[in-house]
Design a binder for these strands. Structure first.
Lengths: 163, 163
DNA sequence: TCCATTTATCTTGACGTCAAGATAGGTGGA
DNA sequence: TCCACCTATCTTGACGTCAAGATAAATGGA
């Protein structure tokens, strides 16, 4: 009935009434992880948008940029590093190519391969965007004390390792 | 060049070479949060799939189920609680209605309102699915010690509060 | 040399999501 | 009573993503 959003704890409280047999401690933790990921994503998307990008395009440009000179990778490399399917890679490349931020070249040794390279415009955009992105991430994390930061990073790292 | 996926730490190492001026400590932490959220989501989606559901449909059915008898909310309530737009609510309802898991009724006092209620089939599906879901969440979190669990939950909670 | 097999990328169709706008019903003041 | 405005939901069009399959090129063994 309530016209309001519920916190993960509110949701647990509802389940406690309706299904008191369920152990919902993990639900609150995982729910908070999800909320946090969402809030962080929204803040980062706003940063990308200031540079005419979104997560998908930032991700691809950043992958090329940090791969170092000559700022070029095959579609397959991009697929692996961005952890997406081949169709999604194709789509991301197409959109960035239309914006003039990357170019497709063919590999002289293997005509099946598509080599994707940053254009000068793409290089300029991602170099500016990543600075802004880092500043946003700093802002988002600086409400954690140094000790909290280290603790959280350690917990996330070991959980991820065990999964 | 590498045909491999990179850890958040690998990514930081690449940036350290290409853009040593950037302070990327937050990037590793936020990156790990994102990876973790993704791994957890994939595991939970697999659970939903065993019941013919996905995240979207589980979310709506669960919202109705835990709202308690008579397991019915307006589209607006669902929009607020699920934190999605009105168009997305309409879409989710349509799909679940086609599966016979919810029904739309009109509100006698306000013809603009769409009241969405669980069917018997919907109730049965969500009651089974949520048990499986809770078991999956238990499995995902039980690699954390009790102490780690409490620490992590506390850190996430306070970070979220401050954001 | 040939061709069956493997590899790299692209295409197609289906989903879930959102922003913006359309539609229809409700409400309050003149 | 009317109508301008507000509210609740639905529609439309655009994206990003994936799974599955199509296409084209490389490879290796007979």
């Amino acid at each position: 009935m309530s016209e309001k959003t519920l916190s993960p704890d509110d949701i647990r409280a509802q389940w406690a009434v309706e299904r008191p047999d369920l152990a919902t401690e993990p639900m609150a933790l995982i729910g908070r992880m999800g909320r946090l990921a969402r809030v962080l994503s929204e803040a980062m998307e706003a940063t990308f948008a200031r540079h005419g990008l979104n997560y998908a395009s930032f991700d691809l440009l950043a992958t090329l940029r940090r791969s170092g000179d000559p700022y070029a990778l095959t579609a397959g490399d991009l697929m692996a590093q961005m952890m997406i399917t081949s169709g999604t890679v194709t789509n991301r490349i197409n959109r960035l190519e239309a914006q003039g931020l990357v170019v497709r070249r063919s590999d002289k040794n293997d005509a099946r391969r598509a080599i994707v390279a940053l254009t000068e415009a793409g290089f300029a955009v991602i170099d500016r965007a990543v600075e802004d992105h880092v500043a946003t991430q700093k802002r988002l994390t600086e409400m954690l004390s140094a000790e909290e930061f280290v603790q959280l990073d350690g917990l996330l790292r070991s959980w991820l390792d065990r999964l």
